[in-house]
């Protein structure tokens, strides 16, 4: 069975960077869940997540598929920047959402500015946003 776990931002808000990464990675690597996180990790935490993922790789866990959807980065450069700054001021890292799935379940996440496709390796289902 495939489980999609929604994680509201307040659940990670007060955790340390390592705590956030461990919490999310445990759900993906240990519980084999696809995580839908409200908002996003900090830029440095995203790189640390990749590093931590590599440390977890073994015969059953092959890594993750990751996508961050940030609506404020869309649109023209000037307007996009203005909107991004406004969103940042109001919402911080709460804006958008992040999808993290085990690579054994999520074969690929195709991302274009205006659509997101999750290609699942188990039953080849395709979801579109």
């Amino acid at each position: 069975m495939l489980t999609l776990q929604y994680v509201p931002y307040h659940e990670i808000q007060d955790l340390s960077s390592i705590g956030r990464i461990r919490k999310l990675l445990n759900m993906v690597a240990k519980e084999n869940k696809i995580v839908l996180l409200e908002g996003r990790l900090k830029r440095e935490e995203e790189a640390e997540l990749i590093k931590a993922t590599m440390e977890e790789i073994n015969h059953s866990f092959k890594g993750i598929e990751l996508a961050v959807i940030n609506p404020s980065t869309q649109g023209s450069v000037i307007f996009g920047k203005f909107r991004s700054n406004l969103f940042n001021m109001l919402l911080g890292d709460r804006q958008g959402f992040t999808i993290i799935g085990p690579a054994s379940v999520v074969k690929n996440i195709k991302k274009d500015p205006d659509k997101l496709q999750l290609l699942l390796s188990e039953n080849r289902r395709k979801r579109k946003r």
Partner: peptide
């Protein structure tokens, strides 16, 4: 290849943050 891969976005964003 598709430039919108999360690796590209994460790394370039990370470099900008640094």
């Amino acid at each position: 290849a598709n430039p919108y891969s999360q690796i590209n976005i994460t790394l370039i964003g990370n470099l900008a943050a640094r």
